[in-house]
Design a protein around this nucleic acid. Structure first.
Lengths: 228, 228
DNA sequence: TACTGTGAAGCTATTCACAGCG
DNA sequence: CGCTGTGAATAGCTTCACAGTA
């Protein structure tokens, strides 16, 4: 009986969410020819505290050397493996408005580990056009295309009104991970993961803190100080 | 006599990050003419548990009615106020590649509380073009434009190599909040807030969980054979 | 010596469960 | 009664501080 060292490790969600940052910092270091890095240096490059970095990495195993630091290439490889980037994940993008086109262009050449295998839209004006080197298909063929091309991750860049329907169709044919850019909540069965990216949410969060920062005398337009 | 309920309350970061979701759910309800909503219903609409919703709202004050629920319009207004959306925040977008253009178009008409007052790019081919009804200016004029137009929030959609420099220039002329779409860590002085949106980070997180779901050596295969 | 990996402490967030009120 | 608001319990995350080690 052989125990896989990673098999029974539970990696905390908060740690998983930071692994990509560490990986990017390590890639930058590797490009600059750095062979070894301390937790202090890597933490700075990734924008976290060194104690947090060490705790995070300890969940993956003991890949550091006491008194020295971490091997850049080796640690990058371990994190890549942990994140599942040693394989190529087939991705489909649905909705090729402004945002969908930008995502298609970005994913087309800027990311390892992912391959865009389908672009789908509902608008007949858009279907058939070439975007980022790929022909846009009809969303009517979603099920067939997802199955044929083994899509694992679905990206939704449609208007909010269509997002749940597209999501349901993804889920029905076995897509287990969805990245949602539509400004709405998606409901999915247990076992399916959804992550949401939302520009206006981010701006609103910034506005909250900006408001707290702005001294009272600098306050801008008071829209609603009307006496009843 | 009633003391200002929000004046000295510390609202937890996790709560702030969810307020936009609640606001969106409330806006949807208001559009459908719903006047009152229970924590259970609103929580479902926002994709959280009702206990969490009630705890979150309790940080804003007591805006519910026991035995009844929350007034939709009233709660929406309170959250808007708390988020600082009763004023318009002037936003500048730097970098008008695919993504920057998509952001400009989105912000141009899809969001209340924010007004795009400047689009800036470095490329002379792009400067002078009209995007989403606004003429692109030169990034050389960043300082002047930020000051003249009172920019409070800077959006960075440049390549990673330019992002820190643009950020520094924003900060130097008083921009206190930055939304960063470039795949890199920005360092800023204390008191400046940065939020990051990163497509490949999100995909990598999904890949991690997707990999965990797919049993070890089980290759990803179509769920259904292709029908003849 | 200079660093990692980690027990323990402290802090933040979530959830339970029900008192309290309309 | 039905629902909110919250004390208390729990779970999860971060930080400290240092034992342990190449």
């Amino acid at each position: 009986m052989i125990a896989d060292p990673a098999a029974h490790r539970e990696i905390p969600d908060a740690t998983v969410a930071r692994l990509p940052q560490y990986l990017r910092a390590l890639s930058d270091l590797a490009e600059r020819g750095v062979a070894s890095v301390s937790s202090e240096e890597l933490a700075t490059a990734a924008g976290v505290r060194s104690a947090k970095l060490r705790r995070d990495l300890s969940h993956l195993g003991s890949y550091g050397v006491r008194g020295v630091g971490y091997g850049v290439e080796m640690l990058a490889h371990e994190i890549s493996r942990e994140l599942g980037l040693t394989q190529e994940w087939p991705v489909a993008i649905v909705g090729l408005g402004n945002l969908g086109q930008a995502l298609a262009a970005y994913l087309g050449f800027a990311t390892r580990g992912f391959q865009v295998v389908a672009l789908l839209d509902r608008d007949p004006e858009v279907v058939g056009r070439e975007i980022a080197g790929m022909i846009v298909g009809s969303v009517d063929d979603l099920e067939r295309i997802v199955i044929e091309r083994g899509v694992a991750i679905g990206v939704i860049a449609t208007p909010a009104a269509s997002a749940q329907q597209v999501c349901d169709r993804f889920v029905a044919v076995g897509v287990g991970s969805v990245l949602n850019f539509a400004p709405c909540v998606l409901s999915v069965p247990q076992g399916v993961d959804v992550r949401k990216v939302d520009l206006s949410t981010e701006l609103q969060i910034l506005a909250f803190y900006e408001q707290r920062k702005t001294p009272a005398d600098q306050e801008r337009v008071p829209l609603l100080e009307v006496a009843p």
